[in-house]
Each structure stands twice: as structure tokens, then as C-alpha cells.
Nucleic acid binder design. Structure first.
Lengths: 207, 207
DNA sequence: CACTCTACCAAATGGTTGTTAGAAAGAATG
DNA sequence: CATTCTTTCTAACAACCATTTGGTAGAGTG
């Protein structure tokens, strides 16, 4: 490769790194203050620069959340695909999906918080149509998994399928609101306990 | 009572009614758009009046959420007090609390959504200190109930107490995001299914 | 009919927002 | 050392925000 080429690659890589850095702090501010409530100047403050300077790196405030959310979703779906491709039984698939979800929270905590709080609002706009797509895909994945599990005799047949789906979906993701990396419980610890609760219940009685 | 007295009561009642009416539409807009993202003009639009006119009834946008949230919390705690005063066993108390929570969602759905999405942000300000108090009280109530239940042998001892608390807290309230009055499942139906899942789990196996 | 009171409207206020354009600082390059 | 390129700053912009002020239509009251 020519020197010109190497330089171009070097600066492109540096630029991408700075971009990711700024995006990470933006995600944290969005997550803690709420997207609509945070000003571009607050994000710039957290990044140690002035408001206008952010526009050298990003087109708009909207494009920042866009990149935060789509990066997270791409990563999440990649890990889901791996699980689904393994061809496990319904219960094992469910366990693996829950573990993958908590690891996703571990890697993208601010993005998950933003996704939870703002996706409903953002999804209304054209630009964030992929949020609606992801949501639909997520729902179909779980509903069919639960149906398969019930047919296989792994899950109780006396529960409302839609309710169970929402239950799992919600319980998995809300944890992002209080989870912190390096805390008392690791993401895998939490996944294990969550699975114990959801699968076997918190009751001591076995009737 | 004198006629003057009766008139004063009449207009005071009418005023309170209008207030509650406006507050209900404000709560709905806040819940669907997010508090920070909704403008006072949007609320006024939904109420069929102009932005400035709302200030005849309310001091500020902040005082609107304030009234919405405190009304909900007062009602919720009143129903919790009733349950706690009944002196039931740990498991029965838990069941009654969950049922009371879902009935609370049924009565104050928009308020619950607002509480979920915005309380963390609002609680930072002096005015909404009661949100922090309520949260602390809620946590103490559940933690001690779970401890009692574990001591009584009603709940599994192998789960992390703090995790179970958050699990229950979250699963109970997120339902406000999709619940709709008069839907396929009543609030009591949902409470029953949620309790079945949380207490006994969704797994078919009983090992 | 005169008067008052309630509930709203019309129009403006100061402040904040996202965003832009042009200058400048500094490192990299020749 | 001169030049270029990258990144930031300075200083604005129009749009929009919550809120205020003063007016007014209309119902209720005497």
C-alpha cells in the first residue's frame, strides 16, 4: 500500500475512534437526562467542547441517537442470530437468549436505556423505521419460541402467550436502568437469577 | 348554609372538575409524548384551547405533572395501606399488593407511565422530593415483605433479595405501557397471570 | 338592563434550542 | 519555515419554548 493510502487509513481510523468516543458520552448523557431533555450543549460539555463543535463530527442531534441505537441493535441481533443458529431446544434457546440480552446490556447499557425510554417516540419518525422492524422481529422471535416451548412441553400451557412475551421482554430490558458494570453481580449472575425466577418462580412451594 | 355558601361550593366544585378534566388530558399527552418533549401548546391543543389559557388553571407545566403524580401516589399508597393493615401472611400480602398495583394501573394508567419514565429525572428537583420518599418507602415495604416471606418459608431462600425486589417492582409497573382499559384482559386477569408467573414460574417442569 | 365573574383569547416577552458560518489554533507535511 | 488539514472556538441565526399581560365574550346575578 502506498504512503498516501496508509495515511488516509490512519486518519480515517482516528476519526472513527473519536466519533465512537463522542458517541459514547452522548449516549450516557441521553440515557441519564433523557433524549429530548438533553441539549446539544450538555453533550458538548460532557465531551469537553462547545456546542457548535459537535457539528464537525455529526450532522445533527438526531443522527447521534440514530447511530447509538443502530449500533446497539446490530450487535444485539448478531448475538441473537448466533443463539438461534445453534438449533437448541426451546428452553435452552430461551436461556441462551436471556444470557445474550444481559451481555448486551453489559456492553451497551446507555443505548439500552435510551432504547427503552425513547424508542416508542422515535419510532414514529421515518428515519427510525428500523426500530419498528426490530421490535416486530423481536416479538415474532419470542412468540414463536414460546409456542414451540409449549408444544415441546417445556413451558406451561395455562398462561397467556402475549402476556408471557411482554413479561419476558420487559423484565429482560428494564435491568439496564440499574445495572452497573463491575457491580456486585455480573451480567451472567443476573441472567442466571432472572432465569431462575422466570422459569421456576420465587415461591418455595412445589405443588 | 347560606346561598352565598352554596354558590361558592358550586363554583369551587365546577372549577375542580374542570381542573381534573384538563389534568387528565395533560397526563395522557405527557404519557404518550414524554414530559420534556411535550409543549404546553400540545396539551392545550388536546384540551381544545390555546396555550396561554392553561395558565388560568395552572401555575406552570411543572405543577401539572406534580398534581398528576401526587394524586396517583396518594391513591396508590392508600390502597397499599389497606392491604398491609389486613395482617395477612407474606404470600397473601404479596398477592394482594400485586392486585392493588394493577388496579392502580387501571385507574391511573397515564400517571403510571409518567412516573416510570420521568420520576428519575424529576426527583432530582426539590419540588418532587416526595417521589424519592415514595420510592424509598416502596423499597422498604417490599424488601421487608420478601424477608418475612423467606423466613416464613413462603419464598425461595436461594435468590438475591435485592434482585427479586427490582424484578417485582419492574414487572409490576411496566405493564402500564401496554395495558388498556376494556382490553382482552382485565387488570385482575393480568394480576393473576403475573402472580402465576412470578410465584411458580413459566416452566412446565416441577423438579 | 347594568354589573360582575369566569374562562378563554390575542399578542407579546425573554430565554433557550438546534444549527450554521467563519475565524483560529495546532499538528502534520513538504 | 511555509502550507495544508484537522479540529475546535466564536458569534451569530431563526425557531420555538414557557410564561405574562391585558382584553373580551358570555353566562349568571341583582
Amino acid at each position: 500500500m502506498s504512503p498516501r493510502r496508509r495515511d488516509a487509513e490512519g486518519t480515517a481510523a482516528a476519526r472513527a475512534e473519536r466519533r465512537a468516543e463522542l458517541l459514547a458520552t452522548a449516549a450516557e448523557v441521553f440515557a441519564s437526562q433523557g433524549y429530548a431533555a438533553t441539549t446539544i450543549r450538555q453533550v458538548a460539555d460532557a465531551a469537553g467542547m462547545l456546542g457548535g463543535s459537535l457539528y464537525y463530527h455529526f450532522d445533527s442531534k438526531e443522527s447521534m441517537v440514530d447511530e447509538v441505537l443502530s449500533t446497539f441493535l446490530d450487535d444485539m441481533w448478531a448475538s441473537y442470530e448466533e443463539v438461534l443458529a445453534a438449533g437448541l431446544g426451546a428452553r435452552e434457546t430461551m436461556e441462551a437468549l436471556v444470557v445474550a440480552s444481559f451481555r448486551s446490556i453489559d456492553r451497551h447499557r446507555p443505548a439500552v436505556v435510551i432504547y427503552q425510554n425513547e424508542s416508542k417516540l422515535l419510532a414514529a419518525s421515518e428515519r427510525f423505521g428500523y426500530l419498528r422492524d426490530s421490535h416486530r422481529r423481536f416479538q415474532e422471535m419470542w412468540i414463536s419460541l414460546l409456542a414451540r416451548g409449549t408444544a415441546e412441553g417445556a413451558f406451561r400451557p395455562d398462561l397467556d402467550a402475549g402476556l408471557v412475551y411482554r413479561f419476558i421482554r420487559d423484565t429482560v430490558w428494564v435491568a439496564a436502568n440499574w445495572y452497573q458494570r463491575g457491580g456486585r453481580l455480573s451480567a451472567d449472575d443476573i441472567a442466571k437469577q432472572y432465569l431462575a425466577m422466570v422459569l421456576e418462580g420465587i415461591s418455595a412451594s412445589r405443588d
